[in-house]
Amino acid sequence: MTPAGSLLAATGLRKAYGPTTALDGAEFSVHPGEVVAVMGPSGSGKSTLLHCLAGIVRPDAGSVTYDGRDLLAMSDAERSALRRGEFGFVFQFGRLVPELTCVENTALPLRLAGLKRKKAEARAMEWLERLEVADARDKRPAEVSGGQGQRVAVARALVTTPRVVFADEPTGALDSLNGERVMELLTAAARDTHAAVVLVTHEARVAAYSDREVIVRDGRARDMAGVGRP
């Protein structure tokens, strides 16, 4: 059963890597415009959960439903199209293409979707401005600071106005001031575009930018909404 109104939901997810169980019946759901933090100790299955939700990793059992569609029943091509057009990704280390400038990096998802260079870069510039890194437009990733690079990565994730943003430890490599600014800009932009955010983090200060948290432990996910409230 998919929770009512959810954009992305998973039930009974199981995934093992050889003898190691990463997910053991995990449940998850996120609504449009909602920021959900996925927390838990290292090795608890947080990243595997994110990868299953994003259609990057195929679970051994269980189901993932995105906007009423069964993600696991889609062909590889359909899933790739979904990841390019409707999902955005931010990783711990920006993973920008080193040979491309910051504006080219940001425009890349639009170019892959077939948009002409000029239009794609114009839209990319809007996002670089919004993320306060317009100055970096013609620099290559190696020429900007870690904080700037991560903002470019966030701009790239948001440039297609995705409906779900997956962020895996997006501030893990940043100092706290830069990390907080990235979180502020990411969550504000996601809320404005009504995108859902799945935010994997082990940092409480980062999780404090979410609407609710899900705790993953021993491959199971516990939704903490309302827990401990009288």
Binding site: A204, A207, A208, Y209, E213, I215, M224, V227, G228
Partner: peptide, 19 residues
């Protein structure tokens, strides 16, 4: 473990308000 989870949530609730 559940007790600690509930306490984490209570802390996070306050942290969200402060944020």
């Amino acid at each position: 473990a559940g007790l600690l989870d509930a306490q984490r949530s209570e802390h996070l609730r306050l942290m969200r308000g402060l944020t």
